[in-house]
Design a binder for these strands. Structure first.
Length: 649
RNA sequence: GCUGCCGUAGCUCAGGGGUAGAGCACUCCAUUGGUAAUGGAGAGGCCGAGAGUUCGAAUCUCUCCGGCAGCACCA
């Protein structure tokens, strides 16, 4: 057999007989390597160790500790999960079991639901299967044989999967002991290589093929790692994330609450509302500076308006509607755009007024599916930092670029530097002509390229086909928070439809009527959601400018209370959000309580401070405190509390 | 909306066919104590709602409401 030349990661290149397997290759290098090897990377692609290599290629032997092996561990683990379930619960059908972030899942079809305590049994069975250490072996089957096999074993879903695989493609079956599964592969060489660092996490329902018209399957989620240490670290990380949960912190910091009578609507408490207002005021300043005029449009409008806008036809199931005694139908606004069009239309607009930018902290209500509700992140009543820009076709591109700059500059102020901009194109359910969509998407594609280019590649971009709003394509701004989670917040949508539906126009330089283009844009998106993101991202430790209570003045002895009152009054007069704690409690008690409430600064005054005009400053998260004159402390705190947009450069 | 689980005091949770418990928080009393819990006493619940089974239901069954996890949907 002819020789092939294989190139190793260290750059060295050696000849081998064609058809050599990864296993034999590893053996030829060293016995210990062949023992540790679990797979091969062939020209960047992960393949089975048993696959013959028949061409010149770059190779890398993957051992269990390599990053590439993690995917295999998880994938193999999914197979073992499926085997365990079928051993324990005969008659259960297997469907798909892919690798996901941090682990894997497998979807099963079974009439009886699994219970939480089944997970323990399944996990024990998995350990047993792994201990058997059966080799994974691959077989290539014909379509007919595979279909026949799965029909015979009652695996209807597998048959359906095979039907969806293009004719001519090989069907690979992986066997582990007595069990086998249709699978693209690759796998490690035996189940024993999975190790013990895995855990079944949760049970959930999931639609077959992700389509809610299909049957619901039972999904078992698991996490798997290369070592027990990694598994432990992952479980610890989950615990840490739970501590940041905005629903928990919102309660502990008395920011807001929910209750049964108002599913999906927020009761904002004084401190939460303070935060809300601080954020709103910041956005108001940013928008005013960017040339927006703030407006306010009605909450409830006649059905006819929503028919004209298309909402009644396309969005009705998400709308709260009401019929009055005189039989008029009204809807509570789910969006602000129709209202803003009315403001634009009121009176003749000149081309000189364009771009006409109006903003509104618009409170909207949407009937969201009950299962979607999630704390502040997904609610039925929320406030958008919404705005609409009416402009000419020629102005469109620059307006989009300005909006892009505004959005990213706002995100920077909160420390969100990693941004992805996605273009969502025309959905199936939509209004307007194809020509309008063509025009809108063409401009947006151009803008998307400019955003990426002008950010020097810092902003990543992408396309979401078919995800646009019913009235136009949209840019979606996805930010990454302090703990690496991604959130879609900002949006910018190009709309040629609504102006036409409402017959909005302006008068151009030749005194002719012209149709404006309309941009819908939001930056934080939903104020509620953004606050939820901030709570979790900061873990409740707000920067001073955002903190609802910026400092608490706590006295040690009653004689210091008068001084404490003076400290409070002076800070309050300077616009600082400060509270006092003169309770008959020990200072330890007070420090503990305000630290748990995540107040950024505790100002402690005892007899000494009162006499000397000083104050003891203790920062949240620090075990120490600094004594300084009150004047110094005040200057320091006031300087730190200046919002980012008002900071002198 | 779908699947599964859950709903006991403001919060965190125990109990589980014979009419209710803990810790923290709260109120009162004593204590004026230097940076993460001073001691004592007290008050607090139609055990999510409705119906059923039962001599008797917070406990079992059903329906509804709400929550949680995931799916679907989405700012």
């Amino acid at each position: 057999m002819a020789d092939i030349s294989l190139k190793f990661p260290d750059g060295s290149e050696r000849p081998y007989p064609a058809g050599i397997t990864g296993k034999a290759l590893a053996e030829s290098i060293s016995k210990s390597l062949s023992k540790k090897a679990v797979a091969l990377v062939l020209d960047g692609e992960l393949v089975d160790l048993a696959d013959p290599i028949d061409r010149d290629a770059g190779v890398k032997i993957v051992t269990r500790g390599d990053d590439e092996a993690l995917e295999l561990i998880r994938h193999d683990c999914a197979h073992v999960l499926a085997e365990a379930v079928q051993e324990l619960f005969p008659g259960t059908q297997v469907t798909i079991g892919p690798v996901i972030q941090d682990g894997f899942f497998y979807d099963f079809a079974r009439d009886e639901p699994f219970h939480l305590d089944d997970l323990e049994k399944i996990e024990a069975k998995m350990h047993e299967i792994i201990k058997r250490n059966a080799p994974f072996t691959k077989e290539v089957w014909t379509r007919e044989k595979a279909i026949e096999h799965f029909k015979a074993t009652g695996e209807d879903y597998k048959v359906e999967l095979i039907d969806a695989i293009p004719v001519g493609e090989d069907l690979k079956m992986y066997r582990q002991g007595d069990w086998m599964d249709l699978c693209r592969g690759p796998h490690m060489t035996s189940t024993g290589q999975i190790g013990t660092a895995f855990k079944l996490m949760k049970l959930a329902g999931a639609y077959w093929r992700g389509d809610s018209n299909n049957a619901m399957l039972q999904r078992i989620y698991g996490t798997a790692w290369a070592s027990d240490k990694d598994l432990k670290a992952h479980l610890h990380q989950i615990e840490e994330a739970e501590k940041r949960d905005h629903r928990k912190l919102g309660r502990e910091m008395s920011l807001f609450h929910f209750q049964e009578e108002g599913p999906g609507v927020v009761f904002w408490h004084p401190k939460g509302w303070e935060l809300f207002q601080t954020l709103t005021n910041y956005m108001r300043r940013r928008q005013n500076a960017a040339g927006y005029k703030e407006v306010n449009a009605p909450q409830i409008l006649d059905k006819s308006l929503w028919e004209t806008s298309g909402h009644w036809e396309w969005y009705q199931e998400n709308m709260f509607a009401t019929t009055t005694e005189d039989d008029r139908q009204f809807a509570i606004k789910p969006m602000n755009c129709p209202g803003h069009v009315q403001i634009f239309k009121h009176g003749l607009r000149s081309y000189r007024e364009l771009p006409y930018r109006i903003s509104e902290f618009g409170c909207v209500h949407r009937y969201e599916p009950s299962g979607a509700l999630h704390g502040l992140m997904r609610v039925r009543g929320f406030t958008q930092d919404d705005a609409h820009v009416f402009c000419t076709d020629e102005q469109l591109e620059e307006e989009c670029m300005d909006i892009d700059e505004l959005i990213r500059s706002v995100y920077r102020d909160f420390g969100f530097d990693e941004i992805v901009v996605k273009l969502s194109t025309r959905p199936e359910k939509r209004v307007g002509t194809d020509d309008q969509w063509d025009r809108a998407e063409a401009v947006m594609l151009k803008v998307l390229k400019r955003i990426e280019a002008e950010s020097g590649g810092k902003v990543k971009t992408g396309i979401n086909p078919g995800e646009g709003a019913f009235y136009g394509p949209k840019f979606e701004y996805v930010l990454k928070d302090a703990i690496g989670r991604e959130w879609q917040c900002g949006t910018n949508q190009v709309d040629f439809n609504l102006p036409e539906r409402f017959d909005a126009f302006y008068i151009d330089a030749e005194s002719d009527r012209q149709r404006p283009v309309m941009l819908h844009r939001a930056i934080l998106g939903s104020m509620e959601r953004f606050i939820g993101i901030l709570i979790e991202s900061y873990g409740g430790h707000f920067p001073l400018w955002l903190a609802p209570v910026q400092a608490v003045v706590a006295t040690i002895v009653t004689e210091a209370d008068d001084y404490g009152r003076k400290v409070e009054a002076e800070l309050r007069a300077a616009g600082f959000r400060v509270e006092t704690d003169f309770r008959n409690e020990k200072i330890n008690y007070k420090v503990r309580e305000h630290s748990l409430a995540k107040v950024p600064v505790i100002l402690v005054a005892g007899r000494r401070e009162a006499e000397e005009g000083t104050i003891s400053v203790r920062r949240l998260g620090s075990q120490q405190q600094t004594v300084m004159t009150f004047a110094e402390a005040k200057a320091m705190l006031l300087a730190e509390a200046v919002p980012p947009d008002l900071k002198p450069e």
